[in-house]
């Protein structure tokens, strides 16, 4: 019996890809915050060649085709690559063709969209407010928590929504770093790709509709931040 839209929703493969995507995002979203806010602050306030270099590195995934980004990461993180090889030999950690590869792919794809709004928000009046806080006797960490973060909260939220949406739809980097191994690394986006190429259009339709729904919610939330 052919798979319908609703039977696709109940299939074990679909449930697995949704669960896997949720697990990837459960790690990637906090990483957007932990990496994106300091990076946005550094790139917005910092100067010099190092900052320019970091800026280029963070922005590259926005302009490079995802397949090219994935390939370059594979050259760095692969089993015998400079970083991947060292990690495998010293810590026994395999980054590619597994869960860590999917998380890295999601973070690399979403991070530029998290960093940009924060970078824009920390320019302008914020320097004066940081100075004011220090004049009022507050330390740098206190100022960061009580002034910088609240000042940038809408931009941080906008960045989180944009980065999450981008990471959810990520295919190219995930394909190369995760390997699209069915039952192991097939996230929702990759499962749509697999379903289309195996003629399971109902499954592809259900998962695409699911992603569209989530994206719609993220877009509405983005609009509410006033930064969308």
């Amino acid at each position: 019996m052919p798979e319908t839209f609703w039977t696709a929703a109940g299939s074990a493969e679909v449930a697995f890809s949704i669960g896997l995507t949720l697990r990837v995002m459960a790690l990637a979203v906090p990483l957007f915050f932990v990496l994106g806010v300091p990076l946005g602050y550094l790139l917005g306030r910092g100067r010099g060649r190092f900052v320019a270099l970091v800026d280029v590195a963070v922005s590259l995934p926005l302009v490079l085709p995802p397949m090219a980004v994935g390939f370059f990461l594979l050259l760095l993180l692969g089993r015998n690559a400079p970083i991947g090889g060292v990690l495998r030999e010293t810590l026994g950690v395999e980054l590619i063709f597994g869960f860590p590869g999917l998380v890295i792919a999601a973070v690399v794809a979403g991070l530029p969209l998290m960093v940009r709004p924060v970078q824009a928000a920390v320019r302008g009046d914020l320097l004066r407010l940081i100075e004011l806080s220090s004049v009022l006797g507050k330390s740098a960490p206190t100022t960061f928590v009580r002034v910088v973060l609240p000042h940038c909260r809408k931009s941080v939220a906008a960045g989180m929504f944009l980065a999450t949406g981008r990471a959810l739809g990520e295919v190219g980097v995930s394909l190369l770093l995760g390997g699209d191994i069915v039952g192991r690394t097939n996230t929702v986006s990759l499962e749509i790709y697999n379903a289309v190429f195996s003629g399971q259009f109902a499954r592809a339709g259900f998962l695409a509709a699911l992603l569209a729904g989530v994206s719609l919610v993220l877009t509405l939330l983005l609009k509410r931040t006033g930064r969308g």
Binding site: D125, R128, L132, S133, V135, G137, V147, H151
Partner: peptide, 17 residues
């Protein structure tokens, strides 16, 4: 600056919005 115990008022942006 935070240990000098001064009060400072700028022309603008003197309050946290």
């Amino acid at each position: 600056v935070r240990r000098r115990g001064i009060g400072l008022v700028f022309q603008d942006a003197s309050l946290f919005p």
